[in-house]
Design a binder for these strands. Structure first.
Lengths: 160, 160
DNA sequence: TATTGTTATACTCTATAACTATA
DNA sequence: TATAGTTATAGAGTATAACAATA
């Protein structure tokens, strides 16, 4: 037998190597950088950006469906949508088949803002991964998805 | 020549594949799960956990040094430290060589809480990566570091 | 003058529940 | 009864600046 008797349980957490911490730091820095792009130029925050991006992607969509595609609860979406409507970036129209629902669409002004943000956001994401080879980028994305799936199973603190 | 003339610039952002969004979602779910561990049992939040963890790691450290090791500004640290002191988890003692500074240390109660949290936190992190091979885990960590380095260079929205 | 740390203020984000109107 | 969405409220977290004490 080797000198390794029992693996010593670790008695401290090294923050710098602790995955939840590092993920949080990276996400914060990345979100902050991206937030400047749409925050400074268009005065919108993360929830508003997500709603705008989801409508931009699906063109005509209910708040509930936005929630399913953007990891946000109905409260956050409702407020973000109200704020975007105030600024004239989106419109609401009732769904005649179910009057509880409202379809959200971009106004021309909203489409224009969206069209301005998209290349900036894509460029930002591209800059972020500029040091990675395409393979590394794909690997990172794949591992990220697996971690996310695991985290959801393990414990999903997300909104109902 | 092939039919590929110019690569079409992308006209929309697909949220589900957009890296800043995915990082944010993963970090939020992971932070939320971990936050339950120290939140529900010990009534502390993320800034308090980071301060506790940093003191636990370095044993005796100033607020400024905590800031350098934990990505937090002095204001957040000051408040987290005040809260931890109120609960009797940490102590402050002046640095006689520079009275502007205060060394922070864990009290026996704080050490005991820390000793309870450490294995829970390590286990949480281990569960998170349970689906990854050691190689994959190392690769993910390496890529995460490179992304973080790039994000900081590209734009560091962190506190001064 | 510059630095460590605290306090004040205001703003964003989040979580919960109560409410409405429709189904 | 259940669902889509809104409103109310309170709690975290964050950013900024102003401040006190010390260097």
């Amino acid at each position: 037998m080797s000198s390794a008797s029992k693996p010593e349980p670790q008695r401290s957490v090294t923050l710098a190597t602790f995955l939840p911490y590092r993920l949080n730091v990276l996400a914060t820095v990345v979100s902050g950088g991206l937030g400047r792009i749409y925050g400074e130029r268009f005065g919108i925050g993360i929830p508003e950006w997500r709603v705008l991006a989801t409508i931009g992607e699906f063109k005509r969509i209910t708040a509930k469906a936005i929630g399913q595609h953007s990891e946000m609860g109905k409260v956050k979406i409702s407020r973000a949508a109200a704020s975007l409507e105030e600024r004239g970036f989106i419109q609401r129209e009732a769904n005649v088949d179910d009057l509880r629902e409202m379809f959200l669409t971009l106004t021309p002004a909203g489409q224009s803002v969206y069209d301005e943000i998209v290349p900036l956001a894509l460029n930002y994401a591209a800059q972020l991964t500029a040091d990675l080879s395409p393979d590394e980028e794909a690997t990172f994305g794949m591992l990220l998805d697996r971690l996310l799936a695991r985290a959801r199973k393990e414990f999903d603190g997300s909104e109902p």
